[in-house]
Design a protein around this nucleic acid. Structure first.
Length: 369
RNA sequence: GCACAGGUGGCCGAGCGGUUAAUGGCAGCAGACUGUAAAUCUGCCGCUCCUUGCGAGCUACGGAGGUUCGAAUCCUCCCCUGUGCA
């Protein structure tokens, strides 16, 4: 049974208000997905992530493969059960690690050889292997194994990288389709199956992006992602790439912009027609003392907040803002108390989720096209 | 009282005759983080001034003298701390 994605409303600007019926959760879109790389949205317990309203969170193939190992997770009933997350999940394929672990890996047509960042041991990742791992993890959505092209990349480099990603996409899909019945919860979801998304690459070259999108659509994935953006390129280019690609993707399938972004970005791209986004920013920035508020950025470590008894964000109803002061959060940061990471992350996630909630409302009330 | 070992910038701690306003670390101040090698990384961190520069002046390595062209570094005395012996 293929992924059911309903577009409930769409706007002249291309924005869509939708609902994605994943095996573990009906997800209201556009959606922001907190990142939980190693089976945890860092510093925030699952029940809190849930109560903040997150419906879909990420996990990472590479990290979970290294620790505790996908076979172990399969034996324990899959990732959902292992981490006790009842709602939807998506696993990234390890493609981003091809990019971020650039010093520790070697890429060939066959796949990637990584050196573990944990103990230096050698591991190979090919599209087929990434699929096997992701099937064992059993997220609602798996991602094709891709190469996230760096910026800047010459046209030749972007083209070669794209060739690899398209080749890997085909192999990912074919292996996934052949084995997707092996997902740990196969018999428990009324015939709903795990889904696989393809990933558009092409660097900052419009024609390559176009080519990438068209070829992926031909392959017929359950959804489509735009990858390789927000990797250092100017914002203008990011927008151009998104604007070029979105119209080429099927209207009845979800569109996922990977790894983006700042609060204003997720709003902007959602209004352009992106249905899903994920980003480490709210949680990582939180751990480093940066809060995103309705008034903009706030570095809560700053001395000026030492005795400020206001809540971090005067307009925020999140658990952190309801109960704690700027002075207290600053104090926790200064003492490096783990609670600082937790409370800050809760606020930032709430802020991101709230932005998307508002965008959904606004798309819903916008004139239907 | 005697014998050792020590006293260095907010703290800890290197340096033991000259590129030394003085290595490091911590604390402090500020900045950065975009499919998480990130509770990480970067910058500043004696005082004053300006034409903000591998700029100028001042003060500084327990205290006071001394040796030397030059001392945190060597010598003398004093003060203090730790350990051991009385």
């Amino acid at each position: 049974m293929s992924l059911r994605f309903d577009v409930l409303h769409s706007t002249a600007a291309g924005g869509r208000r939708g609902r994605m019926n994943l095996p573990h959760q009906a997800v209201e879109t556009p959606v922001f997905m907190p990142v939980g790389t190693a089976g945890s949205v860092k510093a925030v317990p699952q029940e809190t992530v849930e109560s903040l309203g997150a419906e879909l969170i990420l996990g990472n193939t590479y990290h979970l493969y290294l620790r505790p190992g996908h076979q172990a997770i399969r034996r324990m009933g899959g990732l959902h059960r292992f981490i006790s997350w009842p709602r939807a999940m998506l696993t990234d394929s390890g493609g981003f690690q091809v990019f971020s672990l650039s010093g520790l890996r070697k890429v060939t047509d066959e796949g990637v050889t990584f050196r573990s960042h944990l103990d230096g041991s050698l591991h190979s990742f090919a599209p087929e292997h990434s699929m096997d791992v992701q099937i064992a993890l059993g997220a609602d959505i798996a991602m094709a194994f891709d190469e996230c092209t760096e910026y800047p990349a010459s046209r030749e480099r972007a083209q070669e990288s794209l060739r690899l990603t398209m080749n890997w996409a085909r192999r990912s899909l074919s292996h996934f389709r052949a084995h997707q019945n092996l997902v740990p919860w196969h018999d428990a979801m009324n015939g709903q199956t795990q889904n696989l998304f393809g990933i558009v690459q092409g660097g900052t070259y419009l024609d390559l992006r176009r080519e990438s999108a068209e070829r992926l659509v031909e392959m017929d994935f359950d959804g489509y992602a735009i990858g390789g953006l927000s990797v250092g390129e100017p914002r203008q280019l990011t927008q151009e790439m998104i604007a070029e690609v979105l119209p080429l993707l099927p209207k009845d399938k979800p569109r996922y912009l990977m790894g983006v972004g700042y609060p204003d970005e997720i709003e902007e791209y959602a209004r352009m027609g992106v249905d899903m986004m994920d980003c480490v920013l709210p949680t990582r920035a939180a751990r480093h003392g940066l809060l995103f508020t309705s008034q903009g950025r706030m570095n809560i470590k700053n001395k000026q907040y030492a005795e400020d008894q206001n809540p971090p964000d005067l307009d925020c109803p999140c658990p952190t803002c309801r109960r704690y002061s700027r002075a207290y959060l600053r104090h926790l940061m200064q003492c490096a108390e783990p609670l600082a990471a937790t409370l800050n992350s809760i606020h930032n996630l709430a802020h991101y989720l709230d932005i998307m909630q508002r965008v959904r409302q606004s798309l819903q009330s916008a004139q239907t096209v």
